[in-house]
Design a protein around this nucleic acid. Structure first.
Length: 699
DNA sequence: CTTCCATAGGTTTTT
DNA sequence: CCTATGGAAG
């Protein structure tokens, strides 16, 4: 077993790493070193058990997590990891499908439809079936739910009880699948489903892959859905070597099909499962751990688990009720400023978490007022912007002429005079001859069945596309350049959108077109988050999962917001809201602030708000209620300003230290001999100094 | 085909 | 309140 660094793990973690025969369930509490266990386990499998990286199938939930894991494993293993199977369910599935999808009737160069594409396709189907397009979002959700529960259109239709709505949904679902197939496109759910289908219908492939993947590692297991679980069961059907790591208390994606029961029933589904609990928390202070544990324990049906920590007690949790969301934001901003000036924290150490995206507005404003740098980790990804999707649609279409949806997106974009009439002509023609829309266009041109004017327009469009298709592109960027040149797309859009397209262009450098499109389709908002950037992070509670910050603020802890009012009726959803709050609390390492307001403006109406019922479940001994709200906060600050005039050190001024050189004063407090100055020395760090003892010179 | 107005709808969103 | 659509008018 060579020199494997087992000693860097605690006993429970070691147990999890060393147990490699048969199913293993690791119940990993928040901050208990879950990722550490997975990376060490991977390294152990490779170094000590002699498994080749191609034999270890490792699933993470984000691309970012996958990249980080690769990096960490790389460090422990020293050797190279060429083409490891480490990625999200979706990216790993794409990899399998690119090799074998032809066996189930798709072409190898299939493209991936994201939610927007799905919605677009559903909209067209609804229109075609004369149904209200507003149903689109709901239908997309329903279909995705069915798919993640392994219900095919056929299953669904044969099981409905004759309600009209259900019957319609069944028809839409059926139609949706055929349209997807026509476009040679797969949506996110299909990526999983198709691999399942592939393995179920091809015993040789199932054999091959389950022999190849001798070990399966799964992170964030609590957020897998039924289809993903099924895939895992297939892959370890023969050997049962699976290690699922997760925390049922952090399952917060039920609305996306995640199934908590996967973790709760794991032991039943995999007999002789070994269970290891990771209960030592390395992240938070005792106050935070005990408070969050008490709070989450109000949820019934948990896998019992008791977190503990060797860290000290730290501060109690601060709770403060403010009058409205602006005051709340000011309170948070003030506290951040104060803590920052004391010198113990950088701006990147702070996070403000909230339930609703719209809460970010007021918070941003307050931060701007205090001139605190921040970044909003927003749900709307860069790649979802119109101009980006337009360019991507060109690329996809060039690769795959059957992609009717992308075709419809680009055909009159930039505007070239192909309107609704022309489009329906094309679609009818395609339907009549059972050909793709693009073939229909060509046929229309050839058969001369439209006005000369339109024919010319169509011809110039197909010329552009054909010209783009002929060329062999070295990388995605050169294709984008050609698209922009030939279509004149940039001339039609505003300046800031142009900037976005140029940004896309630079990210497409030196990647093949295929790779680029796959990568982009499977990317998310968290993936673009720059953790190096020095600013306060603003993010939703959902987005906060897996992250940690020295200081955390949870804003808007009110009944109706957290828990969200739509969840109030349903005990199951209420439990999920509680877990959401738990995830928020356990992000904090040192300091946790919880705020609520008496009055909140939601959309247009001002609502009276009550503190969240979850707050009552935090035992009072772990919590300090701050009475003073912002109005009593301001005079407070003026008092502390007074002593500052007596000495030469002002916040922001530069001082010289005999050994550390020149630094910037962040804060000063105390009087006379007790005067303390907090100085940030570039490259050295923040130091607390007493001018009485050390000679500080103002420069 | 573009522009402009009315109206509806507005949790959360790892892929 | 604000924004993203969709229909009607130009």
């Amino acid at each position: 077993m060579k020199d494997f660094p087992l000693s860097e793990l605690n006993p429970a973690q070691q147990e999890a790493v060393l147990y490699c025969e048969g199913p293993l369930l690791v119940l990993a509490g928040a901050g208990s070193g879950k990722t550490r266990v997975i990376t060490y386990k991977y390294a152990y499998l490779k170094e000590a058990m002699g498994l080749h990286p191609s034999s270890i199938f490792t699933v993470t939930f984000t691309n970012k997590a996958a990249d980080e894991m690769k990096e960490r494993i790389f460090k422990i293993c020293k050797g190279t990891l060429k083409n490891p199977w480490i990625g999200t369910f979706h990216s790993l599935c794409v990899r399998i499908l690119r090799a074998h999808i032809e066996r189930i009737g798709y072409k190898k160069d299939f493209i991936i439809y994201d939610e927007d594409d799905q919605a677009g396709l559903i909209k067209r189907i609804l229109k075609d079936l004369n149904m209200h397009e507003a149903l689109c979002k709901c239908v997309v959700n329903k279909i995705s739910n069915l798919k993640s529960n392994l219900v095919t259109p056929e299953d669904y239709i044969s099981n409905i009880e004759g309600y009209e709505l259900e019957e319609r949904l069944g028809r839409i679902y059926m139609r949706y699948q055929t349209e997807l197939q026509k476009c040679n496109a797969l949506d996110f759910d299909d990526l999983i489903l198709c691999v399942i289908k592939l393995l179920r219908e091809n015993e040789d492939l199932l054999r091959r892959y389950s022999e190849q993947f001798r070990y399966i590692l799964v992170d964030e297991f609590q957020d897998t859905n039924k289809s993903q679980y099924e895939l895992l069961q297939l892959l370890c059907k023969y050997h049962g070597n699976i290690c699922a790591v997760g925390d049922d208390d952090q399952s917060i994606y039920k609305f996306r099909g995640a199934n908590v029961y996967n973790i709760l029933n794991f032991e039943k589904d995999f007999p002789k499962t070994k269970v290891v609990k990771l209960e030592q928390n390395y992240r938070s202070t005792k106050h935070i751990i005990l408070a969050s544990t008490a709070m989450i324990s109000k949820n019934p049906m948990r896998k019992s688990k008791t977190l503990w920590t060797e860290r000290d007690w730290g501060e109690k949790i601060f709770y403060c009720q403010l009058s409205n969301e602006e005051e709340e934001a000011k309170y948070i901003a003030k506290n951040i400023k104060e803590l920052y000036l004391k010198g113990d924290y950088e701006f990147r150490d702070f996070a403000i978490l909230y339930r609703l995206v719209l809460q970010a507005r007021a918070l941003e404003e307050a931060l701007r007022m205090e001139e605190i740098p921040y970044q909003v980790i927003s749900g709307v990804s860069f790649y979802h912007r119109k101009e980006i999707k337009d360019v991507l649609a060109y690329m996809r279409f060039i690769l795959n002429k059957e992609d009717n949806l992308s075709l419809m997106r680009i055909i009159n974009n930039p505007p070239r005079g192909i309107g609704a009439a022309a489009l329906s002509k094309i679609e009818n023609e395609a339907k009549k001859h059972m050909i793709s829309n693009y073939e229909a266009i060509k046929k229309i041109i050839k058969d001369n069945t439209v006005s000369d004017n339109l024919k010319e327009t169509l011809l110039s469009f197909t010329n552009i596309i054909d010209k783009l298709s002929e060329k062999e592109y070295q990388d995605a960027a050169s294709m984008i350049r050609d698209i922009l040149n030939l279509t004149g797309y940039l001339e039609e859009i505003e300046e800031d959108r142009i900037q976005n397209v140029l940004e896309l262009l630079s990210s497409a450098e030196k990647v093949s077109v295929r790779e680029f499109l796959d990568k982009v389709a499977l990317l998310s908002s968290v993936d673009t988050w720059e953790s190096r950037k020095n600013g306060v992070s603003l993010l939703t509670l959902h987005a906060a999962k897996g992250l940690e910050f020295p200081v955390v603020f949870i804003a808007g802890c009110e009944e109706g917001v957290l828990p969200y009012f739509k969840a109030l009726e349903d005990p199951v959803e209420l439990q999920e809201e509680r877990r959401l709050f738990y995830v928020g609390m356990t992000r904090a390492k040192n300091l946790l602030y919880i705020t609520s307001v008496r009055q909140r403006k939601l959309y247009s109406k001002v609502q009276k708000q009550e503190p969240s019922s979850f707050i009552k479940d935090i035992p009072p001994e772990y919590c300090t209620c701050i009475r003073k709200d912002y109005s009593t906060f301001t005079p407070d600050k003026k008092e502390s300003d007074k002593p500052r005039v007596k000495h030469p050190f002002v916040i922001g001024c530069k001082v010289k230290h005999p050994t550390w050189g020149v630094g910037v004063v962040r804060d000063c407090y105390g009087e006379g001999d007790d005067l303390k100055v907090v100085v940030n020395f570039p490259g050295i760090g923040v130091k607390k100094l007493a001018p009485k003892i050390v000679n500080l010179e103002r420069v």
